[in-house]
Design a binder for these strands. Structure first.
Length: 112
DNA sequence: TGATTGACCAACT
DNA sequence: CAGTTGGCCAATC
């Protein structure tokens, strides 16, 4: 029998994503690495997909791939919504690509 | 209930 | 240099 204190992979993902500060972005791989599964980056995106049903407070629009490309924009309902949200936070996005991505990048390890 | 897939990444050929 | 493959966990078919 599993301990209730043991959180699922998804729960850990949500915990990290929720801590992303305003105007900052991070990547799937970085989050996956932060929770101890560097190669589970795909699951992070999968968690985002379910997050719409589970935790609407998760800023999924602040999570992009390692290239700073808005690969998950197709899952926001409106393709332009993700880009709009990022631009509203002061992040420049052109052609689904975050401009000066390294400057807006936020490392989840900073919460430790 | 087994097989497939899914918003990724890195290594290998 | 570009295309393929392996890996991870959970949900869907």
């Amino acid at each position: 029998m599993k301990s209730k204190i043991e959180e699922s992979f998804f729960d850990r993902v949500y915990s990290v994503v929720r801590e992303i500060p305003y105007g900052k972005v991070t990547t799937y791989g970085t989050i996956a690495r932060c929770i101890g599964s560097p190669q589970s980056a795909r699951m992070v995106g999968w968690a985002m997909n379910n997050s719409h049903n589970l935790i609407p407070e998760v800023p999924a629009h602040r999570v992009v791939n390692r290239n700073g490309l808005l690969t998950g924009k197709n899952h926001f309902g409106n393709v332009e919504l993700m880009q709009k949200l990022l631009q509203d936070e002061g992040i420049k996005v052109i052609n689904d690509q975050i401009i000066d991505f390294n400057s807006h990048f936020w490392d989840p390890m900073s919460i430790y």
